[in-house]
Deep mutational scan, measured.
Amino acid sequence: MLEGKVKWSNSEKGFGFIEVEGQDDVFVHFSAIQGEGFKTLEEGQAVSFEIVEGNRGPQAANVTKEA
């Protein structure tokens, strides 16, 4: 699992980007967020995730919010 911080997200469009130190930003779709209820990410929020190869390149999977 990698750790990063949410660079920005748009809940209306359903995606955002995660900033990882020393690496390119990672695309995240809201379907990759683990948990119940409305899935949102806040700018600056710490997250853990895996990287998978998506249709348009690397993207985050199994995203969990850190406490």
Rank of each mutant, 00 (worst) to 15 (best):
M1E: 05
L2I: 11
L2A: 07
E3D: 09
E3I: 15
G4E: 01
K5L: 09
K5C: 13
V6C: 06
V6Q: 01
K7G: 03
K7L: 04
K7P: 04
S9L: 15
N10S: 11
N10V: 05
N10D: 09
S11K: 15
S11H: 14
S11E: 09
E12A: 14
E12D: 10
K13L: 11
K13Q: 07
K13D: 04
G14C: 13
F15K: 00
G16Y: 10
G16N: 03
G16I: 05
F17D: 00
F17Y: 06
F17A: 02
E19D: 05
V20P: 01
V20R: 07
E21C: 14
E21N: 10
E21R: 11
G22W: 05
Q23W: 11
Q23D: 06
D24F: 10
D24W: 09
D25K: 03
D25C: 09
D25A: 05
D25V: 06
V26D: 00
V28P: 01
H29I: 06
H29Y: 08
F30T: 02
F30D: 00
F30A: 03
S31L: 05
A32W: 07
I33L: 12
I33H: 02
I33M: 08
Q34G: 08
Q34H: 09
G35Y: 06
G35W: 10
G35R: 00
G35T: 08
E36C: 14
G37M: 08
F38H: 11
F38E: 13
K39T: 09
T40W: 13
T40F: 13
L41F: 06
L41Y: 04
E42H: 13
E42D: 10
E42M: 12
G44Q: 04
G44I: 01
Q45R: 06
Q45K: 04
V47K: 00
V47I: 06
V47L: 06
S48G: 05
S48A: 08
E50Q: 14
I51A: 02
I51Q: 03
I51W: 05
I51M: 08
V52Q: 08
V52H: 07
E53A: 12
E53H: 13
G54F: 08
G54T: 13
G54D: 06
N55T: 14
R56S: 08
G57N: 02
G57F: 04
G57D: 02
P58L: 10
Q59C: 08
A60D: 01
N62I: 05
V63N: 01
T64M: 12
E66M: 15
E66C: 15
E66P: 11
A67D: 12
A67C: 12
